[in-house]
Design a protein around this nucleic acid. Structure first.
Length: 416
RNA sequence: GUGGGUGUAGCUCAGUUAGGUAGAGCACCUGGCUGUGGCCCAGGCGGCCGCGCGUUCAAGUCGCGUCAUCCACCCCA
């Protein structure tokens, strides 16, 4: 019988990586709470149509990357490939958007995309998402970026590049699109890669961030989106960048930054690192003012971002392994039960305590204590009341200790 | 979906050039230390050499296939 294996792109998270995930998540909760975001947990499975309408039927995510399957009644269901659509659906469904005021939520959890795995990319991956619904103000854009920056800084990341672009609105974007189509229509077709020849028809904006050298060369002289946005879009974006500049948050304008999800418009951004290989982007987001309405809700604007946990975890340094307050070393089978009861009592008082379920040599028990980074060893020689010794594992000093005084002594050791 | 790299002990990897009975380090166990740790020393446990077919007297090594995995393209977090 062959040993069972996980599916391609579905990975197990062991320490220290699982510890890093936990630590990143708790810092996210702490930062987002200060910014007034509440945690929302939405289903991992939604009706397929939600993503088709939300992300865009023509996007790669929807066309070839979704885990889609019929349920028992033949309805098409999909494992969520991103979080925003589900969050908006939940807010619409529960009537949160029909009132005045902001809706600010974050959500943490797994996403699923059927892709070939590579560095920084799995089929099940984890994101931290934040959404602010209900404001068109440039202050919302800036505040969301402040929050993202605060989070990334608090988990210890510096040297990240914050790229910004303005994608325009449904009024002005078509003009830019026409300009692009006209420009690329004039260049010699065999100079563009085959992907870009296709993109000219499907989504000309995507040609802008093609990595093929010849395409980049051609794109250098392509019309700039900055020259084609309408006045309201231009002024909104300028206000955002002015505020960011005033805050001291370093950003970089990237006119070729185009995001792959159709719902983005206006301010879009991406945070990239140079230490991640090909998947350089640790976070990305932007404004999606038409999306709530597209999903059947009221005309409520929104802005949000997503961070990739796996990519964050590759950048943060490993947390220190937790140390143990005491390891109980037993002298034989006759004290195992006493060790278990003693461990239970000390653990209930807040100490980290370990012991073996089988009696082993003292040598192997002390080795285990070292490996677990135990501050002290409790040596049990007697199944009755006495025979207890406490050994400081740093100094090697070993003294008799009554069972009642263990907690007091462990607390003292912990403080020293 | 396409391209390239890699599959040998629990982990990291030598060994493949030139076919000849399977190696190291780490980890684990035991002992030196007459029940007391880290360092050191000695010993031990542990391998269908990813899987299948072929070439050969003989294959971890050569050929074909297959699976897995990693990296990259595409795209995204």
């Amino acid at each position: 019988m062959n040993a069972m294996q996980s599916g391609k792109g579905f990975v197990d998270l062991f320490p220290p990586q699982s510890d890093m995930f936990t630590s990143i998540e708790s810092q996210a909760r702490s930062v987002f709470a200060r910014y007034g975001c509440k945690e929302l947990r939405t289903p991992l499975v939604e009706f397929t149509e939600l993503f088709v309408r939300g992300i865009g039927a023509e996007t790669d995510v929807v066309q070839k990357e979704m885990y889609t399957f019929p349920d028992r009644k033949g309805r098409s269901m999909t494992l969520r490939p991103e979080a925003t659509a589900g969050v908006l659906r939940a807010c619409i469904q529960h009537g949160l958007l029909s009132q005045e005021g902001l809706c600010k939520f974050f959500t943490i959890g797994p996403m699923f995309r059927y892709e070939r795995p590579q560095k920084g990319r799995q089929r099940q991956f984890h994101q931290i998402n934040a959404e602010v619904l209900g404001s068109r103000s440039h202050l919302a854009d800036a505040d969301v970026l402040f929050m993202l920056h605060a989070f990334l800084t608090e988990i210890g990341l510096s040297g990240l590049i914050y790229e910004l672009n303005n994608l325009g609105c449904p009024q002005c974007r078509p003009m830019f699109r026409h300009a692009l189509e006209a420009y690329y229509g004039r260049v010699r077709h065999d100079d563009l890669c085959s992907d870009c020849l296709r993109r000219i028809r499907t989504n000309p904006l995507r040609v802008l961030d093609c990595k093929a050298p010849t395409c980049r060369e051609i794109t250098k002289d392509a019309p700039s989106i900055a020259d084609h946005v309408c006045d309201p879009c231009r002024s909104h974006f300028n206000q955002v960048t002015a505020l960011l500049e005033e805050s001291g948050l370093q950003t970089r304008r990237n006119p070729f930054l185009v995001r792959g999800l159709d719902y983005y418009q206006g301010t879009t951004f991406e945070v990239v690192s140079s230490d991640l290989g090909a998947q350089a982007s640790v976070a990305g987001g932007g404004r999606y003012d038409g999306l709530v309405r597209e999903l059947g809700g009221p005309d409520v604007p929104g802005i949000g971002f997503a961070c990739g946990m796996e990519r964050l975890a590759m950048l943060v340094s490993e947390p220190m392994p937790p140390s143990l307050d005491a390891f109980i070393a037993t002298s034989g089978d006759h004290v195992l039960a006493r060790a278990a009861l003693m461990a239970r009592k000390l653990r209930a008082e807040g100490f980290g305590v370990e012991f073996f379920y089988e009696s082993k040599s003292m040598k192997s028990q002390f080795r285990a204590a070292n490996k677990l980074n135990a501050r002290a060893c409790i040596i049990l020689e007697d199944a009755g009341e006495g025979g207890v010794f406490l050994k400081d594992m740093l100094t090697g000093e070993q003294t008799p200790c009554s069972a009642d005084q263990l907690a007091w002594n462990l607390r003292k050791l912990r403080a020293s």
